[in-house]
Amino acid sequence: MTSEVSALRVRGLTRRFGGRVAVDNLDLEVRHGDLYGFLGPNGSGKTTAIRCILGLIRSDGGTIEICGVSDPIRARAEVGSVVETPRFHEWMSARANLEVACAYAGRGAAADVDYALDRVGLKDRSKEPVRGFSLGMKQRLGIARALVTRPRLLILDEPTNGLDPRGMREIRELLKDLCRKDGLTVFVSSHLLAEIEQMCNRVAIIDGGRLVSEGLVATLKQEDQTEILVDLGISERPKALEILEKIPGIRVVGEGAEGRLRVALTGVEVAFLNRSLLMGGVEVNALVPIVGSLEDVYLANTRQEASLI
């Protein structure tokens, strides 16, 4: 059975280690063209789920389809992956490592190796042994190895682990580029919220091996907000406070200098707030809704004791 709309479809994935359930009945659906974030605290089951998807470890239940293919060996032809810190034959050159990967995939020509090395900016150093590479270069070479067989889906497990801010940014920009320009679907796990928020359009949050939230990043952030915070810049503060006190669903939560106010709206639209102030004779200089962050969604959905960076 094929379901080509999905680059990755996981249903009821379960993996136990002894009595501990590491991945618990997990459902995921990654659409073609998504840059999909897989978010969760350390030990939440992200890496275990990815290893199951890639066939590195057995699952105790569930089904996995990649680009509509459920046979695990054929499905892996559609995937390029980086699991944690990529490992290489250190004595061999970057190019030779990629050629070994190509041989194992049964495909990939010199042109593909050139493309992959060029894509990650390592073409000039392709003949050097990997043992001399920095961690950042190895991460990029890992992505090149994932790209070398021209996959349709990239699965990356914590690709920015151990990198400095510049390196993290480079990887983030590369992934965005691969998604937008090369048309790849990217599934990336991380426990770094800001990272996922900055690059992904969809996100799944996993905790204790279970899916706790899933959807478009923008939608999740909106759904999380039971009240909307708005920063106001007004001409007459006393008059404004008088008007706002009379409207049910509006609460003043902070006052700043020079006619600045922060109000919380519950069941009240921002436009209504603006109209009420104008009709009451208060000039509104600024009206800025404060959108909640993915961090708010994450913290609301994961355990308090979970580690978070």
Partner: peptide, 18 residues
């Protein structure tokens, strides 16, 4: 032990053939 075998097993090959 150095986890380079993992990088081969994510390719479309059976473990027997490896």
């Amino acid at each position: 032990s150095d986890r380079t075998l993992r990088e081969l097993l994510v390719r479309p090959v059976s473990r027997g053939s490896v």
